[in-house]
Design a protein around this nucleic acid. Structure first.
Lengths: 115, 115
DNA sequence: GTTATCTGTTACAAAAAGGATAGTACTTAC
DNA sequence: GTAAGTACTATCCTTTTTGTAACAGATAAC
């Protein structure tokens, strides 16, 4: 277990805010989670994540800007674009798996509370 | 490493959304992080987190509703209230530490990119 | 009684986020 | 040339979130 002093707490606060600045919001982590099953096209992502094109476009730009997702234009019949996780995005895997685990845990807690 | 099939991905997506529903947003995780250094009063929290009373009140209610924070009214001269993390909030420690770690990591990456 | 502290709430405003719908540009298929 | 598929963008609007400022109730100090 870690000690929680006033100073370490201020640092922790800042670090958490930094993280939220990059992957906070409704979609970023969901998109990354979806992309973990492999590279995907724009419409494909839109369908799988259930996100409108406008928002998707904005979110992908931000993710790309922060080096978490790469965008590759393919020279196909109708031009397609492949979005893919970057190696750097792998540094988020602990965050993702912790949140997934907690999501399961909490849902189970809620469900059991109802039954 | 975990496999990422289409089905496991849908589950993961849902779990992450569940988590975001509870601790998403600008303040929840920051408040929990601040409270890790011990129980605190309302104004104290407001100052330390840099959050206005209106928002703080709302956030604390939601955290309490979800069993992450407990509220105890103390019979002091001016009535004071102690907010404290519940044992259940401990289940979030992995999420918190993962996000803290990533915040540090990413900040270092950015800083080095500038220098 | 005025001021101060603590815990909030209320009213108002501003900003950010998100969503719906349609349209652009390009190409292929019919 | 019409439709369909890809990848967006533009416009408009609603909802959510956040912030500011002031105020209220209770108690104590001066």
């Amino acid at each position: 277990m870690k000690k929680h002093t006033v100073e370490s707490c201020a640092k922790a606060k800042m670090a958490i805010r930094d993280t939220l600045d990059i992957v906070g919001g409704k979609w970023k982590l969901v998109l990354i989670s979806v992309l973990r099953s492999g590279k995907k096209g724009f419409n494909e992502l839109s369908r799988e994540a259930g996100i409108s094109p406008r928002i998707l476009s904005k979110e992908l730009q931000e993710l790309e800007m922060n080096g978490l997702v790469s965008r590759k234009v393919c020279d196909t019949k109708p031009v397609t674009v492949q979005y893919e996780l970057t190696p750097y995005s792998g540094t988020l895997s602990e965050v993702l798996s912790a949140m997934e685990k907690w999501g399961y845990l909490h849902r189970n807690k809620i469900v059991q509370g109802i039954e």
